[in-house]
Computed example of a mutant assay.
Amino acid sequence: MRSMSRRMLLAAAMLGSSLTGALAQDKTPVKLGAIEILTGPNSRYGIAIQRGFDLALADINKAGGVLGGRPLALAYEDSAGAKEQALNAARKLIGRDKVPLILGPTLSNEMFAAGPVANERKVPIVGTSTTANGITAIGPYVFRTSLPESDVIPVTLKTAQTKFGIKRVAVMYGNDDAFTKSAYDVMKASLEKLGIETLTTETFGSKDSDFSAQLTKIKALNPDAIVLSALVEAASGIELQARQLGIPDKVFFIGGNGLNSPKLGDIAGKAADGTLVGSPWFIGKPDAANQAFVNAFKDKYGGDQPDQFAAQAYDTLFIVAKAIDAAGAPDSEKIKDALIKVKHTGVMGPFSFSDTRDPADTSGVVVLVMKGGKFQLLQ
């Protein structure tokens, strides 16, 4: 009970209002839409995001909801990682459910399909995990709370260069996904800027499972590290096959945001040890809000630990709730105008939007290393 009370106080503080105990005549739920990958190989991301939303939803509603006492509700649509399905989900949520705001979709590919629909219909859409270049350029109704890869990857590569002295790398990336291709573009530019030599660039498709040809070529070149832009399923297979083919542990992987999931360790095991990723969040952050979130997440989900995607989703729902309160009504246009002004301090730290509707503060990137199947702060 003591833990629950503390969480409720933190939730009320996050919302920045004294909603608890507020009375209002209108108790109709304010229903928002959420498009996430809930089935299929990339559901590891979408389910983590859904769990973060659901935990925040419970905390917000226990603290009094929005608009002086109206409960918040979420209508989920499963995109299954398919652009067409994400597009249809956006049309359904806007046309049938009349939601004033959409959360998601999970992947940048999906946002490039669904974002234009939301923008055309003048319904704000907020990505919590879409990190490709050009997301918010879709239009003025498209926001994101996730740091773009262009802010994270350069920090990761610079850290690898400074700490481990990497000079020669091989690069691998998925060439049929907007997110992994965009991350590769950032990697390429960052490597050139840092003066790190790229020995070879190898590509693969999102449905590929055999990477032996690419890895055999890379092994013969003896790079210091392998720079990898992939989603977690492919990344796990690549790391496992690299070790099976005899690429030594000293040749570690440096990943983009797709590798930033505990599932990498779950699937690849020891083969993933030494992998470096950049992140705007770390589970071991000692502040009270973060530790309350981590403990509540583990309590609710049978001991499972949250990842960056769950943390970003958790904070995002509080940000949206604040915008709804500031708007004074579940009105899309008013919420859009309020969102850009929201300031929030949550489990990710202080947050506000820039004038491009991206995160304004990009200084909080940390570099994590996988050891024993779990990410730790790189010391």
Rank of each mutant, 00 (worst) to 15 (best):
F353M: 10
P330M: 11
N175G: 10
S279W: 01
L15D: 10
V126S: 11
G52L: 09
H344A: 13
A323T: 13
L74T: 06
K31D: 05
N119A: 05
P140T: 04
H344G: 11
G69Y: 03
K298H: 03
M187S: 00
N119V: 05
G46A: 10
G328W: 06
D185M: 08
I135G: 07
T156V: 15
T106P: 12
K83E: 11
R6H: 10
T200K: 13
Y301M: 07
I283S: 12
K83H: 03
D331K: 01
G246R: 13
D97M: 10
G64D: 01
A48T: 12
A326D: 13
Q308P: 00
T162I: 04
N222M: 05
T28R: 15
T28F: 02
S236R: 04
K207P: 03
V277D: 05
G81E: 08
S182E: 11
Y45K: 07
D54I: 03
L10E: 13
T159N: 05
S5I: 14
E333K: 15
R96N: 13
A113Q: 06
G303E: 01
L32M: 12
G95Q: 14
G95L: 13
A137S: 14
Q85N: 09
S363E: 13
I138A: 09
G104E: 02
A329S: 14
D176Q: 08
G40H: 01
T275C: 07
S43F: 02
P262T: 08
L38S: 13
G68A: 13
A63H: 04
T130V: 15
G269L: 10
A114H: 01
E202S: 09
E84Y: 07
A329F: 00
G246A: 12
V277W: 00
I319W: 05
V142A: 10
D177S: 15
T362M: 05
L23V: 14
F297S: 00
F375H: 06
G165L: 06
L103C: 08
E192P: 00
A82E: 14
M14K: 15
I335T: 00
E84T: 14
N222G: 03
A170Q: 09
G195W: 10
N257F: 04
K374S: 11
T356L: 08
V251D: 06
N109P: 02
Y173N: 07
V367W: 07
D208E: 04
A118Y: 01
A170C: 14
A323D: 11
I94N: 00
K158F: 02
Q244V: 11
V152D: 08
R7V: 07
I254D: 04
A310F: 02
K300I: 02
Y45T: 06
